[in-house]
């Protein structure tokens, strides 16, 4: 699948912090698309170390289709419950978007039931949008539920996070935008995700937010991202990792910032595409307050939970991964 043969060196454990962390020391990042449900606590730790202050977890497909509405309900509950808590243990503020993803919109009987429970969740604290919704195969049923959810978002005054399809991407992206406009959504309330060199121009020209997913092999690479920011600037552009159960990288945002810095991109532009723009876009929900993650680190100490060991004030339940001894 990959073109990068493993060398002896790449199998060695890393003894030190990677060099790129030096370049972004003190910077803060906001990853507006990452599926932490599928990631380990090690990832949260690494993200916090790399400066990720807050994230958005969009509702998505779990790798195989769900067969009942209750599993959807439990999934949505976990996004505002357990996952929110898990992130807080690392001082990361966790937001989410709620929605019926395009793949599962194809099961009409189930989709109808999911649409009924969505209002239970979309008004909850920390729910910053309806997402990720849109097209996968671009079927009639996908369109039906995409439209229905656009209406929900418009009524609730919530931003929309659009998943654009892998296949027939350019036309799928155009169609997604056409339909959003048709339903009376203001383009500034719509974040069009997973853009590439072929889609970005039109998305920006029509006034939508353009999000880019740094995801190996299938979506955007970060060297290409550097070139895109050099060409299009930083207005209405944001970067995310969309890290999930596939081969992906939850550090994609900080790594891309480091690469941008190395490539001479202005610090303010880096700040906009890896932090500020995503906040501006999703804060239109009224559910984002930057003070939330400034206080997260303090709240965190009180909430900390660590299995069978007892934490005392200020103690970090941190494991030294390079230590052979486990206590």
């Amino acid at each position: 699948m990959c073109c990068n043969p493993l060398s002896e060196q790449s199998l060695q454990p890393q003894a030190q912090e990677p060099l790129y962390l030096d370049k972004i020391k003190g910077m803060r990042f906001f990853d507006p698309h990452v599926h932490m449900t599928s990631r380990t606590t090690d990832d949260y730790q690494a993200m916090a170390d790399a400066g990720v202050a807050a994230i958005i977890e969009p509702s998505f497909w779990l790798g195989q289709p769900r067969t009942g509405v209750d599993t959807f309900k439990d999934y949505f509950s976990s996004l505002v419950g357990w996952e929110r808590f898990r992130a807080s243990q690392f001082g990361i503020k966790h937001y989410c978007t709620i929605g019926l993803n395009s793949k599962e919109a194809n099961n009409e009987a189930l989709a109808e039931q999911v649409m009924e429970v969505l209002p239970l969740f979309m008004y909850k604290e920390g729910v910053v949008g309806i997402g990720e919704i849109g097209f996968d195969d671009q079927t009639a049923l996908e369109e039906k539920y995409y439209r229905a959810q656009l209406n929900l978002a418009r009524e609730a005054g919530l931003p929309v996070q659009i998943h654009t399809p892998h296949r027939d991407k350019k036309r799928g992206t155009q169609r997604s935008m056409d339909i959003a406009l048709e339903h009376g959504l203001d383009p500034k309330m719509v974040i069009v995700d997973h853009n590439n060199e072929e889609t970005v121009q039109e998305v920006l020209d029509r006034g939508f937010w353009a999000a880019f997913t740094i995801y190996p092999f299938t979506k955007m690479g970060n060297e290409r991202m550097v070139a895109l920011v050099k060409q299009y600037g930083s207005e209405r552009i944001m970067v995310n990792s969309a890290a999930d159960w596939g081969i992906s990288d939850p550090l994609a945002v900080p790594k891309t910032a480091a690469l941008m810095h190395e490539s001479g991109i202005d610090l303010n532009d880096i700040h906009l595409v890896t932090y500020r723009n995503a906040i501006t876009a999703f804060a239109q929900s009224g559910q984002i307050n930057e003070a939330d993650w400034e206080s997260a680190a303090v709240v965190d100490q009180r909430e900390k939970f660590n299995g069978s060991s007892i934490l005392r004030g200020g103690q970090q339940p941190r494991v030294d991964k390079h230590n052979k001894i486990i206590r």
């Binding site: 309900k73 509950s77 505002v80 419950g81 357990w82 929110r84 239970l120 969740f121 909850k124 604290e125």
Partner: peptide, 9 residues
């Protein structure tokens, strides 16, 4: 209870 967020619970 069944649909509660962390704060609601």
């Amino acid at each position: 209870f069944h649909t509660g967020s962390m704060e609601e619970l």
